[in-house]
């Protein structure tokens, strides 16, 4: 399991983030002592650090700079300051991402996943995802099965991509919506229904029936 370190001095935010990330399949650890923070972060040897800017003793930007001197761990800076200058500064200090409070948790999750993925296959880019029975071709945006290829529209592709990276997990409609909106496809509820229906039809064309399961009140599941 991938370990995420939460460096945040507000107790409630820390606890809620921990519980949210734990629920989503990460091992989240919150730090509650800040007097020796840089060493503590390095000692944890986590896969990713969520770093608040306003902290007791030292501020996040300084911590970020110090960590970068010895470690390449992905860092996401979380802050309530939100001007361009702060953003530029923290990227200068070596942070990988910058999220402003009050952040959208789905966006944060997507950023965490993206960063972890990039870190894992650094250098290689994924071109295809094997989805138990068919292959999703990321470069061509197609479904591939037994030499058959079916083109997907942009929306269909995005939905299927999100379902496939969460293969075997129930994904809520909200989550899919958040992902689509984040990818700048501003679709509404109806369009989502239509797209899911079309996706199912396309999967049936290659003989895959009921590949996307609807869980009432919960969301969708790619089996």
């Amino acid at each position: 399991m991938q370990k995420i370190l939460i460096v945040e001095d507000d107790k409630k935010i820390r606890q809620e983030l921990e519980s949210f990330l734990n629920k989503n399949g990460f091992l989240a650890i919150g730090i509650n002592k800040f007097d020796n923070i840089i060493q503590d972060i390095l000692d944890e040897k986590s896969d990713l650090v969520l770093l608040d800017i306003n902290l007791p003793y030292l501020d996040g930007e300084y911590i970020c700079k110090e960590i970068r001197k010895v470690s390449n761990v992905p860092i996401i800076i979380v802050t309530s300051r939100d001007n361009e200058i702060d953003e530029l500064m923290s990227l200068n200090y070596g942070a990988d991402q910058y999220v402003t409070k009050p952040y959208n948790i789905q966006i944060l999750l997507a950023k965490i996943r993206g960063l972890l993925k990039r870190n894992q296959n650094a250098g290689t880019t994924m071109e295809k995802i094997d989805c138990n029975g068919f292959v999703l071709n990321l470069a061509q945006r197609t479904i591939e099965k037994d030499n058959k290829q079916i083109d997907l529209t942009k929306n269909e592709y995005s939905i299927l991509y999100y379902l496939s990276i969460n293969k075997g997990k129930v994904v809520s409609r909200d989550e899919i919506m958040d992902y689509l909106w984040e990818s700048e496809e501003f679709i509404d509820d109806n369009t989502l229904n239509v797209n899911i229906k079309r996706l199912r039809n396309k999967l049936e064309e290659v003989g895959l029936v009921d590949k996307i399961e609807t869980r009432r009140g919960q969301g969708y599941l790619l089996k």
């Binding site: 507000d10 409630k12 935010i13 809620e16 983030l17 949210f20 300051r81 948790i105």
Partner: peptide, 20 residues
């Protein structure tokens, strides 16, 4: 003050995310 008030807003939003 605005930066401060964003902290409880963030916390509330997180609580909501965890209790939908």
């Amino acid at each position: 003050w605005i930066h401060e008030v964003k902290i409880p807003i963030s916390a509330s939003k997180l609580i909501i995310q965890n209790n939908k």
